[in-house]
Amino acid sequence: MNYFIVLTLTGIAAGMIYSALALALVLIWRATRIVNFAQGAMAMTTTYIALAVIRATDNYWLGFVAALLAGLVLGAIAERFLVRWVETGPPLNAVILTLGLFLILEGVVPMIWGAQIQSFPAPFSIAATQVGDTFIALSHFNLFTIGLVLLVMLAMLVFFRFTAIGLQMRASAFAPDIARLLGVRVGRLLSLGWGIASLTGAIAGLLVAPTLLLYPSNMDSILVYGFTAAVLGGLDSPVGALVGGLAIGMALSYIGGYLGGDLESIGALVILIGILMVRPQGIFVHSAERRA
């Protein structure tokens, strides 16, 4: 198969994972105007929890569900008991807090599960798919990844557009004080928002581990890619997160394929710096609307 197409397809599959992490960052940014630098570490933690459950029950899907629930709870706890204290302070406080949470998680997880690299099961084959005589660059697991992330995006869209709680969350993000006057429990919605975001991050963690393996810092580079994707999409737009993730995934795939795999991380940082210099507001944000 044409090398370019192979790179494109693997780029899309990887990009979907960056999209999921970018979406987690975007959800938290929309709700609280905080960039959660602990997002990757939280996803790593929930993936370890999944692994423990999978080993104990010998069932991948139980581990999968455990990771999502752990993500929901971990995010809500982080907001309620940590972030809540710095939300009204200067933005730098929140940055330091999430960085601190990142360091704590990467310190505590190896104390519980060890620091060695572990393999993580995939629910579907990670070998290239064969149709007749030809191999397609995408594995069944890649297809599962793409489908799952698209499903999550769709679920978020429905939740925010068509449910009363989603509506209240959108309203709270724009004007929390007015929402409160109308009876909205803004604090609870913030906890919920962080929970949903880190549930999304947990999905990214589960999708990364089968191919990149599981160790305490396994999400660090993914966080950089996801953050780049989120910034590219404007930090404010779920659709931007999806498109940004795909763009970064493909760009890094081409860089890795044509220039050498060592250059992928550097490539992401170059793209990030480039966006911040040329179009810091991202490509999907209508900044005028935001000032409402």
Binding site: L167, R170, F174, A175, I178, L181, R290, A292
Partner: peptide, 10 residues
């Protein structure tokens, strides 16, 4: 509210 406080994005 005096300033109406409507959500312009909604």
């Amino acid at each position: 509210l005096q300033g109406l406080g409507l959500w312009r994005a909604l």
